[in-house]
């Protein structure tokens, strides 16, 4: 099995994950679920960066997008005024 084949295989997997994550982000019914899918999307993109040899970019992708941006988005989602959890009790 040539190394390039392995890489292609990995790329296909990561790309599929990224696309699936993106679709999940859009179509998830709950905002929190879409955030969760977004994590997978970001992680997969970081993996793609790694495959291309851009290690710094991969690390920055995880550090900034996952570590900070997503958290800020999470805050935004959670701090918006809406009845939380109440629909569960109906």
């Amino acid at each position: 099995m040539p190394a390039s084949l392995l890489e292609e295989f990995a790329f296909a997997l990561l790309a599929l994950l990224a696309i699936a994550g993106a679709f999940g982000t859009i179509y998830a019914k709950r905002v929190a679920h879409s955030m969760l899918y977004l994590i997978f999307c970001f992680l997969a993109v970081a993996g793609v960066f790694l495959l291309t040899g851009a290690e710094l970019l991969a690390a920055i992708q995880i550090l900034v997008y996952l570590g900070s941006v997503l958290l800020v988005v999470l805050f935004g989602v959670m701090l918006t005024r809406r009845q939380i959890q109440e629909e569960d009790f109906e």
Partner: peptide
């Protein structure tokens, strides 16, 4: 080569899990 950066990047993932 960038092990320090990777380490710190991974350190930042757990808060998301905590939040979820």
């Amino acid at each position: 080569d960038l092990s320090l950066l990777f380490l710190m990047a991974i350190f930042g993932i757990a808060p998301l899990g905590v939040f979820f």
